[in-house]
Design a protein around this nucleic acid. Structure first.
Length: 555
RNA sequence: GCGCCCGUGGCUUAAUGGAUAGAGCAAUGGAUUCCGGUUCCAUAGGUUGGGGGUUCGAGUCCCUCCGGGCGCACCA
């Protein structure tokens, strides 16, 4: 629709601007009005013009409509009217929707895909949990958002790398080794104490599991707290954690193309290289035995330490080196980071440094999601009733399955605090939005099955201009918007846009189903409705695929 | 104290600066011989936290105040 009208509108604006002796405005929008009574498409062109000319927008609208009416095909657009403050509303002939549906169906299984990102290398980094424990609920939101955004970019034609950044060195890993070793000693001798006060130790039950495996394998051979034995404990812990994380990810249908080890930034000399470059540009200095990053010379207030006086770098330095590496060496055109709200503080530093290193910081887009609160019976829940311990991502997957879990993480805007309603999640009924969507898909599949059982042939082509019932038109309108929704989701980096849209498609389908019969209708109309069903089914299937959720044939 | 996010009917929330703020849940009342009722329709419920400002037009942008969350290390 837009593609038909956009050039006509621009021509008309050009004509009008010429007679008025001004430049044609560029900032005009052509959009589907929220309220269907305002026609099928609407433009604010007259208002934008009026602003520049300081003239009455409705007056200009009259002139513009005159020009438009003469250049538009009246079989396609049946009405052009002026409304409100100066909106110009276009109404399309009902049969036009059938024609557009025909075009959409030509795309077959690929409805929604576009080439916007062709040739653009994108990197999406998400989850990125260090191997010191289990994934918690917050990681779940991070994983669902990151994986879905990667899917969205793929559907927009980008060349996408899914990346997991981790650190298996440093203090935290030594603490993991110590934790495992202490639990190991406890298994050998129950009188050994595990200090609850020691903040460095990991207290989770999983540590016992790792220690038990070591005890089974090595007996008492690791008793001495030697460097060597602690390393064995640490390695065992790391392996166990990664294996568990991988299993959880797999269950959520998530895979990463690249596992990027922070340590490689040191061994490959990238950290050193980064610091040298920054030093050359005068952004690094020494003070109190430490090395500082002069953020104050990059327009920020406080300088920060990047190498401690002990000689160890702070987390900031590898973060900067990592981002610089992605842009400068690995040549990504778009770098998307998915972070929880607790990581907010480091971002401005990294961005400033990346810019100081001469890279385009607009290539980095940081998605910060807020926290997840689990709610049950109107109260916040922290402990799982099932395990008696704090809720992990696995607990959610176990209780509600991967579809419900993923969808619940995606159905709210990224920047809002997410309330995960456990009562609603366990509901296997229409109240649960996941089932509402999946049921719509299953119901279409069911109609197709029934047709087959009754020996009804579904034709390859149909005259979709016969679809004139309001519920048919409504469903077509929604289905036609899918490509635009995929584009918008990529622009805004908001998976929720798709979740919300799919609910509307499902609702439009259910209403259509309620109002219009398919099987048993007169042949040509029945075939037209099959064509509409095919489009709706593809849209639901593809939309759910982007969200990483199954579209079942049966439920 | 400083920075970031959020505040929309009872609850959970939507709305590229556009028209009468849109849904779902809960409540109330209806629909259905049918292709899956896990569906559909209707009613009721709002000063978009308060106050200023910018704009032809503000839930959206700016300022300020209030409330909630998260950060603010030579921790990661």
């Amino acid at each position: 629709m837009k593609s038909y009208l956009t050039p006509i509108l621009h021509d008309a604006l050009k004509t009008l601007s010429l007679t008025l002796g001004i430049d044609a405005p560029t900032e005009i929008t052509l959009e589907v009005p929220r309220n269907a009574e305002h026609g099928d498409l609407s433009t604010n062109a007259a208002m934008t013009l009026a602003k520049a000319l300081k003239k009455n927008p409705r007056e200009l609208a009259v002139n513009l409509v005159e020009i438009l009416k003469s250049s538009v095909n009246s079989a396609v657009i049946t009405d052009i009217s002026i409304a409100g403050a100066g909106f110009i509303n276009f109404t399309f002939a009902p049969s036009f929707y059938g024609m557009r549906l025909q075009d959409l169906l030509l795309e077959g299984e690929n409805i929604g895909r576009n080439e916007r990102g062709r040739g653009i290398k994108a990197n999406v980094e998400y989850v990125s949990a260090n191997p010191t424990g289990l994934l918690h609920v917050g990681h779940g939101r991070n994983a669902a958002i990151g994986d879905t955004l990667a899917n969205i970019l793929v559907w927009n034609g980008y060349d996408v790398t899914r990346e997991y950044y981790f650190n298996n060195a440093g203090n935290q890993m030594n603490n993991l080794g110590r934790s495992v070793h202490t639990r190991y000693l406890q298994i050998l001798d129950a009188s050994v104490e595990f200090s609850e006060e020691d903040k460095g130790l990991y207290h989770g039950e999983y540590i016992k599991e790792i220690a038990q495996a070591l005890a089974d394998k090595h007996g008492a051979a690791l008793k001495e707290a030697s460097e060597e034995n602690l390393t064995i404990c640490r390695k065992a812990g790391e392996e166990w954690c990664f294996a568990t994380i991988h299993a959880t990810m797999k269950r959520m249908n998530i895979h990463h193309d690249v596992y990027f080890n922070e340590d490689s930034l040191y061994t490959d000399g990238k950290v050193k290289d980064t610091i040298e470059r920054l030093r050359e540009k005068g952004f690094v200095y020494e003070k109190d035995g430490a090395t500082w990053l002069a953020l104050s010379r990059m327009g920020m207030t406080d300088d920060r330490v990047i190498i401690k006086s002990s000689g160890e770098p702070t987390y900031r330095l590898p973060d900067i080196a990592y981002h610089h590496d992605k842009l400068a060496r690995r040549k990504f055109d778009l770098v998307v980071d998915i972070f929880g709200a607790d990581h907010i503080a480091t971002i401005p530093d990294v961005m400033a440094a990346v810019e100081a290193l001469g890279e385009e910081k607009s290539k980095v887009r940081v998605v910060i999601h807020q926290f997840v609160t689990l709610m049950k019976d109107g109260e916040q829940v922290k402990m799982s009733k099932r395990t008696g311990r704090s809720y992990t991502l696995d607990d959610l997957l176990e209780e509600f399955g991967e579809d419900v879990t993923r969808f619940f993480f995606l159905m709210r805007g990224v920047s809002t605090h997410l309330e995960f309603d456990l009562n609603l999640a366990e509901e296997q009924s229409e109240k649960n939005p996941v089932f509402y969507l999946q049921y719509a898909h299953a119901r279409i599949a069911s109609i197709m099955r029934t047709a087959e059982e009754r020996g009804v042939q579904i034709a390859k082509t149909a005259d979709t201009t016969l679809l004139l019932h309001p519920s048919e038109i409504e469903l077509i309108k929604f289905v036609l918007r899918f490509p635009e929704i995929i584009l918008r989701a990529a622009e805004t980096l908001e998976p929720q846009v798709i979740a919300e849209y799919l609910r509307e498609v499902a609702a439009a389908f259910h209403k259509f189903y309620h109002d219009c019969r398919i099987l048993g209708e007169e042949e040509s109309l029945m075939q037209a409705r099959f064509a509409l069903l095919r489009a709706a089914k593809t849209v639901l299937n593809n939309g759910l695929a982007v969200l990483g959720i199954k579209a079942p044939e049966k439920m």
